[in-house]
């Protein structure tokens, strides 16, 4: 049974819970003060996007769970150092992407990381197109891959991507254009 307190802490996540909805910033502030239920709500609110981010980096469901867990443990450790005067999301996503990058760096390279068979539905041609794009994205230089994942997969605005990466919006746009151009060339070469 969900306690009243947990219900009151329900983060805005569109579940029709009806309790007092706290912003991620407020949850982070409370969790930083040692409130485990606030932290749990934070994890609940972000787990889908964090897992999705991890999956885009490792393309393996099991490993993505490891990475997502590592991200949340890092978050828990670092919440006390988080300056609540600054926006939460750029700080959090910077931490999350750093954990992903460190994980990929430590990882033993495999010949080819293929997506799980159960990760998408649709006709085979579409699936193979998505696989090719996912593979090309995985091989993209991280300077170009990160803004593409943040903007297109995590639905961040260019401003949020810029804050997360510590870059100007113009620099983010430029990296995204270059990244997409590399993807276009790679996909064209594979198709041709």
């Amino acid at each position: 049974m969900v306690s009243l307190r947990a219900a009151a802490l329900r983060v805005a996540r569109g579940d029709g819970g009806g309790g007092v909805r706290l912003t991620p910033l407020e949850l982070a502030r409370r969790a930083g003060g040692g409130d485990r239920q606030a932290f749990e709500e934070l994890v609940r609110g972000y787990q889908r996007r964090v897992y999705g981010l991890a999956y885009q980096y490792v393309r393996d469901a099991g490993e993505a769970q490891d990475v997502a867990q590592e991200i949340f443990v890092h978050l828990y450790r670092n919440l006390r150092r988080y300056d609540t005067a600054r926006p939460f999301e750029p700080w959090f996503w910077r931490l999350a992407t750093n954990v992903c990058l460190n994980y990929v760096r430590r990882r033993v390279p495999e010949p080819r990381d293929l997506p799980d068979s159960g990760d998408a539905t649709g006709d085979p041609a579409e699936l193979s197109g998505e696989s090719a794009l996912a593979r090309a994205l995985g091989e993209l230089d991280r300077a170009y891959r990160l803004p593409l994942i943040l903007h297109y997969h995590l639905d961040m605005s260019l401003q949020q991507v810029a804050q997360t990466m510590g870059l100007s919006v113009a620099a983010v746009k430029s990296r995204m254009h270059r990244g997409r151009a590399v993807l276009r060339r790679t996909l064209s070469e594979e198709a041709g």
Partner: peptide, 16 residues
């Protein structure tokens, strides 16, 4: 449109 699987149900308990 790039998909990712749903997070496994034991992610939250394992994190906590």
């Amino acid at each position: 449109a790039l998909t990712a699987p749903e997070p496994p149900p034991d992610l939250l308990p394992s994190v906590m």
